[in-house]
Design a protein around this nucleic acid. Structure first.
Length: 291
DNA sequence: CTGGGGAAGGGGCCC
DNA sequence: GGGGCCCCTTCCCCA
């Protein structure tokens, strides 16, 4: 039976590696479009940490992104007039310019943290104890000409006398010129370019059907690989044992079985594995039960 | 429980 | 911007 007919079950703790990386990147880099408005601060660990016994919290780190509650514009998604492709793009996220493929669901947004602090141009250029270097955009704010009242939009440099004025400006005008994110209407994943979104949407529309069995794929080369399962073609041959494979990645995994060095090692029992999935399965099977 | 093969998903990169 | 390809990863199955 083809795997595609099986129901995909995701265990909650299993997250694709690339997604974990993106999540980490989001946490470390916050929102790139609004980076200048997010101030990394060093907080004392005893302050930042949650109480013992609590599950680890995102802010249980020495370096965190401080979030201060102020009556200021939040990162909000705004419904807009039809975007570049009204058939495919259902919403436009106006605040962020993210790395391609970074789903916002996995970003800080899901942490339910307070709104971000919007800094005036006069914000002190040096922050944090121990002489930590100030964030880039804080340095940028230092260089930027100041408004008459000391508040200035870092995006368009308009001066404002009051913080509320600046906030209103960012809410109503300036953010509209910020880079957009394009949201998939099928799953709400967001992308910084229309091309990346269209590529993703193919995983929903599956425009490449197999003429033999009818199974559909998102991309032609995926279909090509699938057709090999019908034809039996195996163009990738192992140079060690002459075994052939239909998929290059499977050949690569196979080559690991010829290798003396196993890349993946259990940190507790030091046992090594040729594939990460084997290591994960080893750890999940209770090899090394936790304390 | 472990090792390995088969099939497939999906993002990134390059042309 | 789109297509092809690469690479990594996951999931399932079987020995």
């Amino acid at each position: 039976m083809p795997r595609s007919f099986l129901v995909k079950t995701h265990s909650s703790h299993k997250v694709p590696k690339h997604r974990r990386l993106e999540t980490q990147r989001d946490i470390d880099g916050a929102c790139s479009a609004c980076r200048g408005l997010v101030v990394p601060l060093l907080l004392p660990e005893k302050v930042a940490s949650s109480t013992p016994g609590d599950p680890p919290q995102p802010w249980d780190r020495t370096s965190v992104i401080a979030r201060i509650s102020l009556p200021l514009p939040r990162h909000e998604e705004a419904r807009e007039a039809p975007g570049p492709d009204p058939l495919e793009v259902s919403r436009v996220h106006v605040c962020a310019s993210r790395a391609p493929s970074a789903p916002l669901k996995d970003s800080l947004n899901h942490l339910n943290l307070p709104p971000l602090l919007v800094l005036p141009a006069r914000w002190p250029p040096t922050l944090g104890p121990a002489g930590d270097p100030a964030p880039d955009r804080v340095r940028g704010a230092e260089r930027a000409p100041r408004g008459p009242g000391g508040f200035q939009c870092l995006h368009c440099r308009k001066p404002y006398h009051t913080l509320a004025g600046l906030a209103r400006h960012r809410e109503l005008q300036c953010h509209l010129r910020a880079p957009r994110c394009f949201t998939c209407k099928y799953c709400d994943k967001e992308y910084s370019s229309l091309g990346a979104l269209k590529m993703h949407i193919r995983t929903h529309t599956l425009p490449c059907p197999c003429a033999i069995c009818g199974k559909a794929f998102s991309r032609p080369w995926l279909l090509q690989g699938h057709i090999r399962t019908h034809t039996g073609e195996k163009p990738y041959t192992c140079s060690h044992c002459s075994r052939a494979f239909a998929d290059r990645s499977n050949l690569r995994a196979h080559l690991q079985t010829h290798s003396d060095t196993r890349k993946y090692q259990c940190k507790r029992c030091a046992k090594t594995f040729s594939r990460m999935s084997l290591l994960v399965r080893h750890q999940e099977s209770g090899c090394c039960p936790g304390p």
